[in-house]
Design a protein around this nucleic acid. Structure first.
Lengths: 246, 246
DNA sequence: CGACGAGTTGAGCACGTTCAAATCGAGTGG
DNA sequence: CCACTCGATTTGAACGTGCTCAACTCGTCG
């Protein structure tokens, strides 16, 4: 159940402001014109992935740049003893691997059937050279990423478990809105409870419990196991922002 | 006790690789040549700050770009009920406010006597237009920032209190090395215990306790209240990375 | 229908918090 | 030079949120 048809990149409404991007790797947003994107595709190759397959691992030499066109990915890093932090999820239209390091500093894995295009570093650099607006766009977007990363630090450093869940659903909702272009009360969860837990700095048990809690408080409904319906967005926003009846 | 003389920017050794930047706002590193920096200064105005004075507040219209030349700053955001997350510290050479949002999304305050240069958005844009290498540099640096932000997410989401402290000291040490160009066992702490706590997602009491813990284990020494000496860097690295005797 | 993995629920525990008191340290005035 | 003050830091004890470990349920696929 991915969010968008595979024609996502050209079909998407242009000029979305990206004001409230949730945390994710560098993204070239919907503001690229179709012909620029067509140029880009010509330089790359397509790759299909099944759920659980890696795009690359932490420590691999960073030779390629990726653009996700279908499905969703998770990004994570591991600590010595196996503790895991998911640092982001990717959706169609997102770019990956544009940090200019010698090695990837995280692992990326498909959450479901995914389709992505890859480019050699050189080809991508040539593309940027041919399209001078792109560099600025990349820079602009990475600034957005950074703002989103700061929001995630606030979440991880200072929010309670329930607040983290609330923030997460609202972020996902906003993001799906940007990808699909339509506002939806239903939010798809292509990731497992464990992935959510590792993203929010919790355990899967706590995620489960807080989900039940938000449900009992009438803020959300579990339409299916992997789909949440936001029933009271306003109150959910309050919870997410740390305003409560306290 | 700031880290560097006020001539920092031109005096700094050129070409530092910035490989392991700790979390901080966008920085134009030491790789800028002195004449480029002189050009930049010509466009801006200098501003002095005392400890505790704000540079700007969350929500202020983002009209200016700043470059810190002396002293240090802290960056934070507040939750509705006063909970605070410090998302970064800034040191001489760091840039601030280059995200292209309409409003600053965080508050910045001086930790001690500081000196910074500011530029109107327009002037800074003109500067970038005149120096085409800078855009690329900015983009490169924000990619580094993002990598550092991801590291901080791992810290906040998955590390224990002791591991957070260890990571923090090592980050600060690396950063002071980059600023001063010399390797030092002593690490200055221009921020209060509360600032450290709010940066690491802890309380000031826990910071104090874990400091005592690391001291008792012979990994650090408290030279003064605001200066830590790293006694056993290797073991401290192990603690920071989450490898322990477990 | 049975088996397996993912998700939920429950009980006890632990790490870090909270609240309170003691100590330290820098600055001020006698 | 020392006494005093005030804030920052450290230390202590009780508490609580979220974790751990275990049992149970659900959904999916053979």
């Amino acid at each position: 159940m991915p969010y968008t048809p595979s024609g996502a990149l050209t079909d998407l409404p242009a000029g979305h402001p990206c004001e409230t991007c949730p945390v994710r790797p560098i993204t070239i947003c919907r503001s690229q014109t179709p012909d620029v994107l067509a140029d880009l595709r010509r330089l790359g190759s397509m790759q299909k992935l099944e759920a659980g397959q890696p795009v690359f691992h932490e420590g691999d030499p960073a030779r390629r740049v990726f653009m996700l066109t279908f499905g969703s990915l998770k990004i994570y890093t591991l600590l010595g003893d196996g503790r895991r932090q998911v640092t982001g999820f990717m959706f169609p239209g997102d770019f990956l691997g544009i940090s200019l390091e010698g090695e990837y500093s995280f692992t990326v894995e498909a959450l479901n059937s995914a389709e992505l295009w890859w480019f050699s570093r050189d080809a991508f650099a040539r593309f940027i050279a041919d399209h001078p607006t792109v560099e600025h766009e990349l820079y602009r977007l990475s600034a957005h990423e950074l703002a989103a990363a700061q929001q995630q630090m606030v979440l991880l450093g200072r929010k309670t478990a329930a607040e983290r869940l609330a923030s997460f659903f609202l972020d996902l909702q906003r993001r799906q809105e940007r990808v699909t272009g339509v506002s939806e009360r239903n939010v798809d969860l292509p990731m497992s409870r464990l992935d959510i837990a590792d993203y929010l700095g919790l355990t899967k048990e706590t995620v489960s419990r807080m989900l039940a809690d938000l449900r009992q408080r009438g803020l959300i409904r579990l339409a299916q196991q992997n789909r949440v319906e936001v029933l009271d967005r306003e109150r959910l926003e309050e919870v997410a922002a740390g305003y409560e009846g306290d």
